[in-house]
Amino acid sequence: MFFEGAEKKAEIQTDLKQISLLNDLPDSFWKTLVSCCKAQVLSTISNPQCKAFLLSESSLFVWDDRLLILTCGETQLVNSIEYFIQQVGTKKIKQLTYQRKNEYFAHAQPSCFGDDMKQLSPYIKGCAYRFGELDGHHNYLFHYENDFTALPDDKTYEFLAYQISETASELLTSSNISAEKIREFLSIDSLLPDYVIDDFVFKPYGYSLNAIKEDRYLTIHVTPQAGSSYISFESNIDLIVVAPLFIDILKPLSFDILSFNEHEFSQKTLPFKEANYVSKSLVEKTLPNGYHVNFANFILPQLQFTQPTQLSVEGENHAL
């Protein structure tokens, strides 16, 4: 069974003097916003600083002055962004960033990054970049071009693991696996002892987790199927520091790290090279909106031959 795990991501920052996203917009607004991209809200957790929605395809986080939404599969996140702009108005938006990662089967998506930019162009103008090589792992990134400047301590991290080990894939695709077992496997409860956690195991495969504490968050999304395995971690806590633990658990053949405003990126990623991973892409840029962005793709060189993957020629198959 194939599922496109790679997420589309949007972060929108708003003017708190004009609107409080937590207090001025009801849950019905967020459910409608999510439905615009053909996803649904499964459950919600909250504290005074943050509300986290677990979705049928990834997650939505809302704070007073910003929102973060990630959606996977064949969702059209750009429709949700358009809905937000139409309902709230551009004058209340301080900054907007939109990302799309390289997908396993991009041809199966209802739109591409360029299509999404054309859809947003009547509302906002901005700059677009590609971080990483076109024929390898990469991230497309668009941001609203205005007079906004990001605060230096506004940091976020993404750790994306591809082609996890056979052992990890077999455990995560085992029948009737529980959320508790997956959290134990990933060491989540020990890493986040004081966080409120909301998670869900999908059938037949897949797992999502939201965790919040005050204004801090972590979200994890697991697509464990062998052949297209992908596990994403997104947070405003330092994932580069804890990445060696996840690498040891998952043993991926490759992984990406993307950070915003982490100025010690090169020094912090040195341990990955010591673990025999090779950096295939290293991209760095300070954007006009003040965000300092680093992107790195690490691969584990293969030392022996493997067998080819046999494909089905019957019926519909994204892989053909």
Rank of each mutant, 00 (worst) to 15 (best):
K101M: 15
K118P: 05
Q119G: 04
S80M: 13
A106I: 11
Q109R: 06
W63E: 11
T75W: 02
D65A: 02
K92S: 06
T90N: 15
Y83T: 04
N102R: 15
C72W: 01
S80E: 06
I93C: 09
K91T: 15
L134Q: 11
R100F: 00
I81Q: 01
Y83Q: 13
C72H: 03
T75H: 03
G73H: 13
D64E: 14
W63R: 13
Y98W: 15
Q87V: 02
Q76K: 13
T97K: 15
K101F: 14
D135L: 07
Q86V: 08
E57Q: 15
A106V: 11
D115P: 01
G126K: 12
C127L: 10
Y129Q: 02
C112L: 13
Q109G: 05
S58A: 11
T71G: 00
F113D: 02
A108G: 02
E103G: 12
T90A: 03
N102Q: 10
V78A: 07
F105S: 01
S56H: 09
E74A: 07
G73A: 08
A106F: 03
Q86F: 02
Y83H: 06
Q86H: 08
I69L: 06
M117K: 15
C112H: 09
Q119M: 05
T97N: 04
E74G: 04
R100I: 13
E133G: 07
C112T: 14
H107W: 15
S59W: 02
L67R: 01
W63I: 05
K92I: 00
F131Q: 06
F113H: 03
Y104A: 15
Y98R: 05
D116S: 04
L67D: 07
F131W: 03
Y104Q: 09
W63Y: 14
D116H: 11
C72M: 08
K92D: 07
K101Q: 13
A108C: 07
G126L: 09
G89I: 07
Q109K: 05
K94T: 07
D65Q: 05
Q119A: 08
E82I: 13
V88D: 05
A106P: 02
F113T: 05
I85R: 11
V62F: 13
Q109D: 11
L60F: 05
D115I: 00
L60H: 10
G114T: 03
